[in-house]
């Protein structure tokens, strides 16, 4: 008789596997090297800030930021000859552009405010049924399944302004399309699932489908509608 992997079975056996894995990890192992001064300072800074009262280091954070900016501005404007100053500015700008381009490739950034609406699917591909869903008001997640057990998994999450979210996996054959005025990134992820990611106002949306054509995926997203 074939073994069926159920949640009950996993709740029974995964803790045992976990305990065996944890037992195999030494408690205080030797990393094999002594951390450098740079790293020690970074960690000490985190610890120092963690010991301060929240209100104090919030003010200190703002003050420190202002002080750093002021010192930097004074150094750049007052002490550096014009030619060196221009070269330094260009170097900083180029570095920022590289960082920005790297982050845009991997992240979405939520700009400003917009809708916090979590939308429902007005269209479900033929053969699929909604088998799980959970709406907390801040997130709406769930999955649809067909008779073959193939899944479509979705999630929507309301983000704070300025939040950055990382795409879950590298996508192959990535291309951007526009649906309902929204820019979607669609591609195939590491597991071969077709994935779509987009931002709708303040909501980060994901739909990943085990075996669905791009047309059907787009039709699902086009058919999303405001809840009643």
């Amino acid at each position: 008789m074939k073994l069926k992997i159920t949640d009950e079975l996993l709740y029974q056996y995964v803790p045992k596997a976990d305990q065996e894995l944890l037992d195999a990890v030494p408690d205080r192992p030797d990393p094999g090297f002594e951390p450098g001064i740079r790293h020690k300072k970074q960690i000490q800074k985190l610890l120092r800030q963690s010991r301060r009262p929240n209100r104090h280091f919030r003010y200190m954070s703002a003050a420190r930021r202002a002080a750093v900016i002021a010192v930097f501005a004074a150094a750049v404007c007052g002490a550096v000859p014009a030619g060196v100053k221009a070269a330094e500015r260009f170097r900083i700008w180029a570095a920022q552009q590289r960082i920005r381009n790297d982050r845009i490739e991997e992240h979405y950034k939520v700009e400003g405010t917009g809708t916090d609406l979590l939308r429902v699917f007005g269209y479900i591909p033929q053969g699929y049924q909604l088998t799980e869903e959970e709406n907390t008001g801040e997130t709406y997640t769930g999955q649809m399944e067909n008779e073959k057990g193939e899944l479509i998994v979705f999630s929507q999450a309301v983000l704070d302004d300025g939040a950055m979210v990382e795409r879950d996996a590298a996508l192959k054959d990535v291309h951007e399309i526009s649906v309902r005025g929204l820019k979607l990134q669609i591609g195939i992820d590491d597991d071969g699932w077709r994935s779509a990611y987009w931002i709708d106002g303040n909501v980060y949306c994901t739909v990943v489908a085990q075996n669905l054509s791009e047309d059907e995926l787009i039709r699902m997203i086009e058919g999303m509608e405001d809840p009643d």
Partner: peptide
């Protein structure tokens, strides 16, 4: 630091592979 959809996907795929 992944989406809930990915969590669900990994659970589902993991179960199928384990089975």
């Amino acid at each position: 630091e992944i989406s809930e959809a990915s969590v669900r996907k990994r659970i589902s795929r993991g179960k199928k592979k384990l089975e």
